[in-house]
Every structure is written in C-alpha cells, then in structure tokens.
C-alpha cells in the first residue's frame, strides 16, 4: 500500500489497533479464544510492540471465525475482525509454510470463480487436492462429499450464463491485479 507497509509488515494493522487499551473485552467475547496460543488482547499488544516474528508464528488469527463479537463490543470501536483478516492475508506471504493448505484452498476457490463466475465445488476441490499433492487429504472431506453428491447438492456451472459475461469478469480480475501491482 505505502512505503511503511513494506518496512514493517504490521504497520497497517498497528494503525488499526493503535488505541487498544488492553481491556480484554475481545478475548472474553471470542468463541475461539480457548483454542488460541495467544489471546486476541495479547496479539494486539504484540502488534503494538512490532513483534512481527511472534505475531506471524501465532495461530490466533487463523482461528478467527469472523463472528464479529469483538468488533461489536470493543469499547474503542476498533475493527478487530478486519485486523484478524488482514493478518491472515499477510501471514501467507510472511510465513507461508504453515498456511500452505488454506492458501491453496482460497487460491483454487478464487480461480474457480474467475473461470465460472460462481464456485464450482467439484472442480475447485479436485484442483485443490491435486495442488496439495497429499493423497490422504481428500478422504477428510469424503463423507460430507458423498452425502452432498447423493442429494445432488453440488452446483453445475451453466455455460449459457457465462458465455456473454466471462470476458467482463476476466477484465475485472486483470484490472485488480494491475492496480495492486502499481500500489
């Protein structure tokens, strides 16, 4: 975004949580805090202290399920859910290895949207499994997949809808990339 972001990867998030008073309302409101290595309150302190290494080693932000309780209740009105989302986005660049699976998952999802406008579950899950090169992974999802297939609850892309609009969406994706490379 700007030059400070490239110097300190946490700059953007730090600005968001700058006025955190460490009251812990976020932690007390978080349904996933029990499973986190650092509580949300502590994570904001680490961000304020520019402790990027520790922040990106933490599993806290990937445990955010975007329930927005912390955002709703924060007495300082800070956009905490959004801050968690940004950390997840950055972590894939800063510390890629542990986030490989979710990164591939989201990439294949978005590529499927790019091709069809809408999510095609069968295609994107197949490509996700292929890209992970892990023969056991598909079995984790098998029981749900079978239930859904039996009920024909999987979407089939409609080529008639996408013939005329595909180019427009492709142009949108290209423009987004162009603008992001400029900034």
């Amino acid at each position: 975004m700007n030059t400070t972001t490239t110097k300190n990867p946490l700059a953007q998030v730090k600005e968001m949580v700058q006025s955190c008073i460490q009251c812990g309302t976020c932690t007390a409101s978080c349904p996933n805090a029990f499973a986190m290595d650092h509580t949300p309150r502590k994570l904001w302190r680490m961000v304020q202290a520019d402790n990027a290494d520790a922040v990106f080693k933490s599993k806290t932000f990937i445990l955010c399920s975007s329930c927005y309780y912390c955002t709703l209740r924060c007495p300082r009105g800070l956009p905490l859910t959004r801050a968690m989302g940004l950390l997840t986005q950055m972590a894939q660049v800063q510390n890629p290895e542990p986030f490989k699976q979710s990164h591939r998952f989201y990439q294949e999802f978005i590529q499927s949207v790019r091709r069809h406008g809408r999510v095609n579950e069968i295609e994107f899950m197949s490509l996700f499994f292929l890209s992970m090169k892990n023969p056991i992974l598909p079995f984790k999802y098998a029981s749900l997949g079978i239930k859904l297939l039996q009920k024909k609850k999987v979407s089939i892309p409609n080529p008639n809808i996408w013939k005329k609009d595909q180019n427009g969406l492709e142009k949108i994706f290209n423009k987004v990339r162009e603008l992001e490379e400029q900034s």
């Binding site: 997840t88 990164h103 998952f105 989201y106 978005i110 949207v113 406008g117 809408r118 999510v119």
Partner: peptide
C-alpha cells in the same frame, strides 16, 4: 457472480 465468500479477503 460470487461475492468472494471468505476466500477473496485472504487473496
């Protein structure tokens, strides 16, 4: 088209 779900934000 897709609203981006939770995937777009992380991409």
């Amino acid at each position: 088209s897709c609203c981006g779900a939770s995937a777009a934000e992380s991409v």
